[in-house]
Amino acid sequence: MEIVVCVKRVPETAEAEVVIAEDGRSIEERDLVFDINEADNYALEEALLLKEKFGGSVTAVTVGPEKADDVLRMCLAKGADKAIRLTDERFKGSDAYVTALLLYRAIRDLDFDLILTGCMASDDGYTQVGVTLAELLDIPHAVYVKKLEIEGQVAKVHCELEGGLEEVMEVKLPALFTIQTGINEPRYASLLGIRKAMRKEIEVLNLDDLGLGEEEVGESGSKIELRRLFIPPVEKEAEILEGKPEEVSARLVEILKSEGVI
């Protein structure tokens, strides 16, 4: 089973402070820690589990700067066989469609049965690249996959809907699935393992290698234009109770009792 996994290097912003950069269209990256996008990590694990079950190979592909090699080496350390990085200054400012186009160019000539990627990137949150890629490759797809079973050339997927509901679909391979977190338990890649993976080659492709023109990528090739980033206006502010734990908890109980909540 030949599997391609699309991964992305993203900053971890859940706990960290996010500051908008001076240009107003990006964020300050200096103090942020970068790692593989969480959902992509689950997609990678799913691919590795399928490889363990069916044999074959796993290829990790990313669109990103040279630093994205950290993520690719981690994928290789965990068991991916090949890694491809698409890097070019001219890719900067690409919207979701263009990103999918870049991946399409790199992947279309590969031999694959399955493409897996995370359902959403935690930085831009587009939730778009995977499905667009499937369309460009002319293969069927499904999203928010929580369970994936393969029998022959057919995949049976459980897709997460809203409110705890799931739908079961049958999809013919080759297909692309966007993977939801929680589908499996990702393994660990040790530092030694990642160092050993440095011996494996990472294929780097640029704009010319992909056979695209400058006007087809980056800001000029994008149909969606990012005008500006801004901190969301605060609609409501909670009344913050101040003081030591003993004090705030007493105050809270007082408030809840007086409001008839408890």
């Binding site: 964020i27 935690s122 930085d123 005008r227 500006r228």
Partner: peptide
Amino acid sequence: YGGKVNAE
């Protein structure tokens, strides 16, 4: 960024 930033 998980709702920390709005984009126009």
